[in-house]
């Protein structure tokens, strides 16, 4: 009852966040590769309510992805080796973007290239398209032979891709980082210096699973990326490290299933969060997470996201 009474005094835009000039109505986005191009989840979610939709990774040409089997459930998580199957940037603009433009939601295009020049060309094409509000640069896919993590694991290569994309667009540039490195803060600092407006982390952790009856890997790609609740503590630790190492906003990703999980990331210092595997389990997960964050804000009498983000107390730790 108290919450109901309090809700009437909610300041409009209480959940709003500003990430490098990109104003989101709330800090909840969908993670790339887990929400298709938005359309897939429109029957279950009000897309207008989302902070942003990060679409499936786009490459210059369509990609057919890896052979099956591509996924395997593991303890409290799943492995995937999809290999960035996508329609290509041109088909995205022609066939998928018009659908997304009907909604009052920020669209973030996740991009991928095998070469630095491919990242540049995809950025160039997307920057001219109406209805793309930011670019998320994927330098962290563990499931492709060329590109992907080959750029994300090395500070110089990560900086070079970032600089190329930065120079090609006036849209906010978010760089998505891999956890499969010795020191993620080193990569974060490198892309910050190269002009990234924000970083998002983590992408999946490389993992493996074996069918003991057939003595074969469960995935045709042998290894895959681990996601889901199993990775959340690792993701949170890396967000904690990165928020203390860079000045740009950090977007937290990794095993967020509930509003409580999202709040852990926000309190730790993430300016926004992305919801991934949870969409597969509960198609309306994002809606419940948004509601849960709002209820928490009311319950704790927090007026705006700025007062929540990074409010972690560590004195005496």
């Amino acid at each position: 009852m108290e919450i109901e009474a309090d809700k009437k005094t909610v300041v409009p835009g209480r959940l709003a966040v500003d990430i490098c000039g990109l104003v989101l109505k709330n800090p909840v986005m969908t993670a790339s590769g887990t929400f298709g191009y938005g359309e897939e989840y429109a029957p279950f979610c009000d897309l207008n309510r989302l902070g942003a939709i990060v679409v499936k990774g786009l490459s210059l040409e369509p990609r057919q992805g890896n052979p099956p089997p591509r996924i395997m459930e593991t303890c409290c998580g799943m492995l995937n080796a999809v290999g960035l199957q996508n329609v290509g940037v041109r088909a995205f603009i022609a066939e998928k973007l018009p659908f997304l433009r009907q909604f009052n939601v920020k669209v973030i295009a996740n991009i991928f290239g095998e070469t630095i020049d491919e990242y540049r060309r995809v950025t160039e094409i997307l920057t001219r398209a109406a209805g793309v509000h930011a670019i998320e640069v994927n330098i962290s896919c563990p499931n492709v032979k060329k590109g992907g993590v080959a750029f994300g694991a090395y500070p110089d290569a990560a900086a070079a891709v970032t600089e190329m994309v930065r120079g090609e667009t006036d849209l906010p540039v978010i760089v998505k980082l891999t956890p499969n490195v010795t020191d993620i803060t080193e990569i974060a600092r490198a892309v910050e210096s190269a002009g990234a407006d924000a970083v998002s982390l983590i992408n999946t952790l490389t993992g493996m699973s074996v069918d003991i009856e057939r003595r074969r890997p469960h995935l045709a790609n042998v290894t895959g990326g681990l996601s889901g609740p199993a990775v959340k503590p690792v993701a949170l630790r890396m967000v904690w490290q990165v928020v203390r190492s860079v000045k740009i906003p950090v977007i937290g990703i990794g095993g967020i299933m509930t509003a409580d999980d999202a709040l852990e990331f926000l309190i730790t210092g993430a300016s926004a969060v992305q919801i991934g595997t949870a969409n597969f389990i509960h198609p309306a997960a994002t809606m419940e997470i948004i509601d849960g964050i709002e209820d928490y804000m009311i319950r704790h009498r927090i007026g705006c996201m700025k007062d929540l983000i990074g409010s972690l107390q560590t004195d005496g730790c």
Partner: peptide
């Protein structure tokens, strides 16, 4: 094996003949 069931995760693919010997999923 499926994760989402709605075409988002692209985990449940089957290989298809696309003509001219090409494979699609």
């Amino acid at each position: 094996r499926m994760a989402c069931g709605v075409g988002a995760c692209q985990g449940c693919v089957v290989a298809i003949k696309e003509g001219e010997g090409r494979i699609g999923y």
